[in-house]
Design a protein around this nucleic acid. Sequence first.
RNA 1: CCGCCCUUAGCUCAGCCUGGUAGAGCAGCCGACUGUAGAUCGGCUUGUCCCCCGUUCAAUUCGGGGAGGGCGGACCA
Length: 337
Amino acid sequence: MPSPRAIVGMDAHERITRNTAEVVTEEEIETLADDPDGKRAYVGYEPSGVLHIGHMLTANKLIDLQEAGFEVTVLLADVHAYLNDKGSFAEIRSTAERMRDQFIAYGLDESNTQFVLGSDFQLDEDYTLDLHALELETTLARAERAMADIKSGDSVKVSQAVYPLMQALDIPYLGVDLAVGGMEQRKVHMLARDVLPSIDREPPTSLHTPLIADLGTGEGKMSSSTGVTISMEDSREEIEEKVNKAYCPPTADPDSTEDGVERENPVLQVFEYHVFPRFETVVVERPDEYGGDLEYEAYEPLESDLESGELHPADAKGALAEYLDRLIAPGREQLAE
RNA sequence: CCGCCCUUAGCUCAGCCUGGUAGAGCAGCCGACUGUAGAUCGGCUUGUCCCCCGUUCAAUUCGGGGAGGGCGGACCA
């Protein structure tokens, strides 16, 4: 079972910033960490019905923030999903509720998490007028750049140019102190920092989680739309199969491909960003002929054991599937109801 | 509104001129080899050929209409 005990000894700043790719700015984060109680953080998600490993990564950060004393808001961004061509508004809305339940099942503290539907405030007159003010401040090229890593489809619609501006505006309207997202959100957050002062709002502090490489190849970014992802719909068997097929050379720093494409070790990344943040100890079960079980209390020793050959990738994968299954099981049961 | 180009396997595209229901590369899947995966080797799968109508014994191919996408429509070149 996931245990918050693992991080009891950690101070607020460390809890807030661990496993992040970037914080903007470090000074602002330090100020928040000095007195985190009652501070507010948020992440927005386009409702998709089923939580996948990408959602889980930012959710881990929300859990860290809650344990550090933050209040957490999850924006179920129905209007954003609609603007990003994800289906009819009615369809999108109906999936939002399922998503809420899965976040709770995953481990967000229900009593300390506020779920807000975007359409509850984004259609108000004040909001709309502020949005138009931001539109007036932003070139199409800038909005398009901000959407580069987020947009669906291969052409940019006007709706998708409005999208990042709404994200910027959501921050003051939700009254949050910290915007959280994956690294694909950074250009949106930078845009927010640039444009919000034009309507007399504070530039928001933001925190970005890393993007995990494609499980199958170690290249690029894992995506729910292309390639293999792991979601709350997966059975134990499917998780084992996907993990077993994952790219996993015995190193944390694999060579680039012949074409010069950078590669990561996605198996290690999932251990680092998904398993160790939620488990106090990780036991790698291993047949006696290969040396018997191994036990880890932190990520780094596991990585160095893989590098040295002490831990074979096949055994690491067995353990990874086991712990991923434990993380997903509550959400999977939730979905089954 | 007008003009040009595009639409064929999951992706990028060839084939159409000279009608007989289709191919490559990549991806994917299976096997061999590694105690994982990858790499390497061997094998294999996949298609409403955008839609409708017409011509024809026969249309992915020809003709007409439509839809979707891209680019262009001052001057200069």
